[in-house]
């Protein structure tokens, strides 16, 4: 077991909207050990993106705590937080809209180094940019190109180089390969794995793609309507999902083979509203194993088996 790099405790982010209070992230707690990857999966609107941004304080949380490397992030001043973000970076989903169209590759990658005043000497800074381009597999001849001249895969490599520029310890990856073709997706996933191995980076990997998250993560957290409903090591989660939602989600993966296709659990209906949720299980209306208690009280996240957490009335805490 490694050192805990990030600890999130009872994190909440509520948005006030016309119809009431939207519970985007609701009482989420977890830890990530250094050098590991926590995958966060869930469908649109489950709060996974808000979670990633709230951890970096790109969105201020409503309540809860984030401890990074032992420091309480919410107690940091704006300038201290700014300094801290050198160690905490983010890679965005859409490589088309997250790059400044008027900056060349070199300028884009150089910008964070320049802003942080990390390398004052311009020649050395330029060497650093070249080194970063090399790390992410961007050919040197592209140094003066603009984002519109490049395909999605290369743009995502720029996003990664920019995140790496500060030598971060931790990167939030928000659907980094979702907009890429499969052959390019595999290139980027392999690159991110190599970087992790070489530089010991810790990832929070947000995605809706279950086969990608299984391949990429050490541990997986499943979110549903703002709640963390299950968390376990990746292989455990895939072999023995405990939450009925996780079970349905895993069975819905379109598998690229024609024999031994898994039995599919069909869910009724669609996501209910995250606005002013009742204090009951948020999945109850779609659950095929719904019991009386599920529509009366909200199940807390419990450790049902060693290191396997679930928030469901079907499961009891393990006896220690």
């Amino acid at each position: 077991m490694g050192e805990i790099l990030l600890e999130v405790k009872n994190l909440k982010k509520y948005f006030h909207v016309a119809a009431g209070t939207l519970h985007a992230v609701d009482d989420v707690s977890f830890t990530i050990e250094e050098g590991r990857t926590l995958g966060v999966v869930g469908e649109s609107g489950c709060g996974k993106t808000t979670l990633g941004r709230t951890i970096l304080r790109l969105i201020e949380p409503t309540s809860g705590e984030m401890h990074f490397n032992g420091k309480d992030l919410r107690k940091l001043s704006t300038s201290e937080m700014r300094y801290m973000r050198r160690e905490m970076q983010i890679i965005f989903q859409d490589p088309y809209s997250s790059l400044n169209p008027r900056k060349t590759i070199a300028e884009t990658i150089e910008e964070p180094i320049l802003l942080a005043g990390l390398i004052p000497d311009s020649d050395k800074r330029f060497m650093r940019v070249l080194k970063l381009m090399d790390t992410v597999g961007l050919a040197q001849r592209l140094i003066n190109t603009y984002p519109h001249e490049l395909d999605g895969g290369r743009r995502q490599r720029i996003g990664i180089a920019r995140a790496l520029a500060m030598n971060p310890k931790f990167i939030v990856c928000d659907e980094p390969v979702s907009s890429l073709d499969v052959s390019i997706q595999a290139q980027i996933l392999n690159l991110m794995k190599t970087i992790q191995r070489d530089m010991g980076i810790t990832y929070l990997f947000i995605t809706h793609d279950l086969s990608v998250v299984n391949h990429f993560s050490d541990d997986i957290a499943v979110m549903y309507l703002g709640r963390l409903v299950e968390k376990a090591p990746a292989e455990v989660l895939f072999q023995m999902p405990l939450h009925p939602y996780t079970q349905a989600l895993l069975s819905a993966i379109p598998v690229a083979r024609i024999h031994n296709r898994p039995e599919r659990i069909m869910l009724k209906g669609e996501l209910t509203s995250p606005i002013n949720p009742e204090p009951v299980c948020r999945f109850a209306a779609r659950c095929n194993q719904c019991m009386d208690i599920c529509t009366r009280s909200e199940p807390p996240l419990i450790e049902a088996r060693p290191n396997h957490f679930v928030a469901c009335h079907l499961h009891k805490p393990m006896v220690s």
Partner: peptide, 15 residues
């Protein structure tokens, strides 16, 4: 290029 759902450690072989 597709991740193997049965074998999560299998290396991706991108084109």
């Amino acid at each position: 290029s597709l991740p193997d759902i049965e074998n999560r450690r299998a290396e991706l072989k991108p084109i």
